[in-house]
Simulated assay, not measured.
Amino acid sequence: MTQESERGMGIMLNKTLAAPLVALALVTVGLAGCTTYDTAGARPAGQDPAVTEETVDDTTQDDAVGDVVPLAVVESAVGATEDQDWYWYAVVVDNPNPDHIFPDATFTIEAIAADGTILASDSHWKVLLSGQTALVGWFTDIGDEQIAHLDVIGPEPSEAVHSPAGETGYVSFDDLEVVEDEWYVTVSGTVTSEFSDDQEYVEVAVIGRDATGAIVAAEYGYVDRVPAGGSARFSVDVWDAPAGLEYEVFASY
């Protein structure tokens, strides 16, 4: 579903699948088990970024994980602000398992120089659901160094929890609008929940694609609460974004 703003920019909507947020008391600060994902095979610019639309539920805590397919990085991008002081990054991670989620997924995103030096790192703690999730953030202490690529470290298949598809809800985005300013682009709209429980502190990640499909801008924001069966407004300011991008919106928990 695509909506055009008055300025001719587009938005691509990703139906976001989720488990009830009672599982979100994430206190882990390290990686109990981790895997470094290969970003070299990430999706080339312009390929269809469709999301697997299957619902999952974390109420069934089955210790028998079974044949869990490893997570994969399908796309990654990094870019500098105009003054070259800060770098934004975006990583799209796919959980290809329709009946398994990662309720306490820890990710580390590393900025790597051409000679292999780790210049900086950033961390994410997620309830990782089936389908694609966008990890968006900033590196603020790179200095004059140049980032050659990103390394993504995340959970192993053994950390997955059996969670049958089709037994819970999802959130969707509507009434989306893109407004361009001299300094930034504001992407706003409504997020609607189909859950029986309130969803709190929902992260909304926004990535902007150019005409070739490449990610050239990214930012994130939060919605304090999306009521059960209800809606809430969101607004994310994307800094230093070129004009005329198509925006894709993800929710995560």
Rank of each mutant, 00 (worst) to 15 (best):
A72Q: 08
D115G: 10
A32P: 06
G79N: 06
S123L: 02
G30M: 14
T39W: 11
G116H: 07
T117D: 05
P20T: 14
A80P: 02
A111K: 04
V27S: 13
E75P: 06
A105V: 12
G41Q: 11
L13V: 12
V29P: 12
S76D: 14
S121P: 01
V92F: 04
L71H: 01
G79R: 07
A64L: 04
D85M: 07
P49G: 01
L31M: 12
A113S: 14
Q61E: 14
V27C: 06
Q84H: 13
S76R: 03
E110M: 03
D38V: 13
T106R: 09
D58P: 13
A50T: 06
S76A: 12
L17M: 09
I11Q: 10
M12L: 07
T59Y: 04
A113H: 08
G33L: 11
G116S: 07
V29E: 14
P70T: 14
P20W: 14
A23G: 14
L13T: 12
A32H: 03
N95W: 01
A40E: 03
N95T: 01
T60P: 11
G116A: 07
A40S: 09
F107R: 00
T81C: 05
P96I: 07
T59S: 01
T108C: 00
K15S: 05
A25L: 15
G46D: 02
P98N: 10
K15D: 06
V29H: 14
Q47L: 04
A113P: 11
T59P: 00
G8W: 12
S76F: 12
D63Y: 15
I109W: 00
V27A: 10
D63V: 15
H100D: 00
D58L: 08
D67V: 10
T55N: 13
A105Y: 13
P96C: 03
V73F: 12
I101W: 05
V29A: 11
A50H: 03
A32Q: 04
A111N: 04
S121Q: 11
T16I: 08
G66A: 06
V27W: 10
I112F: 04
A45K: 15
V73W: 11
G41S: 07
D104A: 15
Q61P: 11
I118Q: 10
N95R: 00
L21H: 15
G79V: 04
A120E: 13
Y87K: 06
A23D: 11
V27D: 12
L26T: 05
F102S: 00
A42D: 04
C34R: 07
E82R: 15
T106I: 09
G33P: 06
L26C: 03
N95E: 00
D58T: 10
H100E: 00
E75T: 12
T36S: 04
A42P: 02
T108K: 01
T59R: 02
L21W: 15
E110N: 09
T52L: 10
V73E: 01
D62R: 09
C34K: 07
D85W: 13
V68Q: 08
D122C: 04
F107K: 00
A120H: 05
T108L: 00
P70N: 12
A113D: 10
A32M: 05
A77D: 08
A25Q: 15
A40T: 13
D58K: 06
A64Y: 13
A111T: 08
I101Q: 01
V51K: 00
L71A: 00
G66T: 10
G79K: 03
C34S: 07
V65I: 09
A72K: 10
Y87W: 14
Q61L: 15
G46Q: 04
T39L: 08
E110K: 09
V22L: 15
T106N: 03
A32T: 08
